[in-house]
Structures are given as C-alpha cells and as structure tokens.
C-alpha cells in the first residue's frame, strides 16, 4: 500500500501545469520521473540525495532527477495533508542553479494551494 500521494498544481483555468511540463519532456525523462514518483510513493521517508531545498525557499522541495546529463527538478511542497506532496512547477537546473523566478512561482503557487484545495488534482501517470 502506498504511503504518499502526489498532487499537481492546477492553473486558474484548470490547466495542469505539471502535466504540461512533463509531456514536453523526452520519453526517457518522463520514464525516469514516473519511476521516481512511483517509488517515492511507496517509501516511508526519502533518501537525502533524492530531494533538497534552496536557501531562502526552505518550504519548496526539489526532486533531484538526472537523465542523459540533464538535471530535471520537479518542485513541490509537503502537503496539504500528511503524506501528500504537491508538485508545483517543473524546471531544469543549469550550473547548479534554478532561476529565482521559478522558485518564486513555486512559492506563489504553494500559497494558492494552501488557501484553496481545489487548485490541485491527483497526479496521473498517463
């Protein structure tokens, strides 16, 4: 039985921001991220190398997924409820950095989701 459930952020018009990002990625990267999320769902806790945070944005958690030397970084936060993780935005890290604007978007979306639970849907793997 899975421990964690993943959710995706929904735009105001209902568009799924995570789904849109994932569908634009190469098949290899999609497979890698899917495999990672499915594995994480069944684990009680996650190894420190699988996730990390950014200074000044400690509530935002990045999933560290590497594929063909590209550093994919789905960003999210723990919540809204226990054993839930909400994916807010997807990014690609370059030179060990993610644009500050991406991190700020993640924070803005986290605030929206915390205020309105209708702005998420359960993550799908198709």
């Amino acid at each position: 039985m899975s421990v964690w459930t993943f959710f995706d952020f929904l735009e105001a018009d209902g568009g799924n921001a995570i789904r849109a990002w994932l569908q634009d990625l190469p098949q290899e990267a999609q497979a890698k991220i899917d495999a990672r999320l499915l594995q994480m769902a069944g684990m009680e806790s996650w190894p420190e190398k699988w996730i990390s945070t950014y200074k000044g944005y400690e509530k935002i958690i990045e999933l560290r997924v590497s594929c063909n030397k590209v550093q994919y970084r789905p960003l999210g936060f723990y919540g809204r409820l226990r054993h839930q993780f909400t994916l807010l935005i997807g990014a690609i890290e370059k030179d060990n950095r993610i644009p500050r604007s991406v991190l700020q978007t993640a924070v803005d979306r986290m605030i929206i989701v915390r205020a309105d639970g209708r702005r998420v849907c359960e993550h799908r793997f198709d």
Partner: peptide
C-alpha cells in the same frame, strides 16, 4: 518502446 526501456533502466 522507448518509454518502457527507459522505465526499466530507471526502475
């Protein structure tokens, strides 16, 4: 096919 080969590797 490309997806499933990658999924096996990732898994």
């Amino acid at each position: 096919k490309n997806y499933r080969d990658s999924f096996v590797s990732a898994h």
